[in-house]
Design a protein around this nucleic acid. Structure first.
Lengths: 111, 111
DNA sequence: TATAAGCGCAAGTATTTGCTTGCGCAAGAA
DNA sequence: TTCTTGCGCAAGCAAATACTTGCGCTTATA
């Protein structure tokens, strides 16, 4: 089964994050991007393909050039998730103690 | 070479994100967490290991139980990156046109 | 028109993942 | 003391990654 990549996976790779940073500041074609990395053009091309797949990049073709632009709206998903997690995150050291106390109480009740 | 995992990789996996959500709301031991998923306890245990490795989870041992607590401060890194990227992100359709115009101008100059 | 430049498409490979299964140890319960 | 939990360790595996190399199709350029 071909796993559809999501935004989380897209930004999990440091190279991809670097590509995003690069393009966010200045849209440019594939070769220009590839030149800034130590890997082959093809490797970068694949990363770009993934980023396009998740909608973090848009490509516009002009003649033989394919210009890549950033499209960071999708990153909302990530930020939202983090914020949600934190919202529900009651500082644990309190929660845990409370939880343990509850369990303890229940057990004492059984005895 | 053993790749050291970072926070981005940690949250790239949906199961791990679910574990974080779970623990954020209520710290609990490994088995309790594992019960909530369809995979084996061991699989969950491995995920927890990874999360601990990146500091997103803390484990406290009480007798034979190992309670896991969330520790979401590390997620700052992700949010910060997203925000930074966006800060530098001038809406591309403008930037690209501008860029293309510059190139065009240079080339016309050469002719 | 002959070249060169910009890219994508495989095909092949070395790692890295995410899981499973089986084993064994230590801490409570009976 | 014996049985039952809660867990980690380790070996084995299939699938997913990240790359590389070589090929070939278009578009510009000389």
């Amino acid at each position: 089964m071909k796993a559809r990549r999501d935004v989380y996976q897209a930004i999990a790779d440091p190279t991809r994050r670097a590509i995003i940073n690069l393009i966010a500041g200045q849209p440019q074609n594939v070769n220009s991007i590839a030149e800034k990395f130590d890997t082959s053009r093809q490797a970068i091309s694949l990363h770009i393909g993934i980023l396009v797949e998740c909608g973090l990049i848009t490509v516009k073709q002009y003649g033989r050039d394919r210009f890549c632009e950033a499209k960071l709206d999708q990153l909302d998903e990530v930020v939202t998730w983090v914020e949600q997690s934190r919202k529900h995150w009651v500082r644990s050291f309190e929660k845990l103690d409370q939880y343990l106390t509850e369990i303890k109480t229940k057990e004492d009740g059984k005895k």
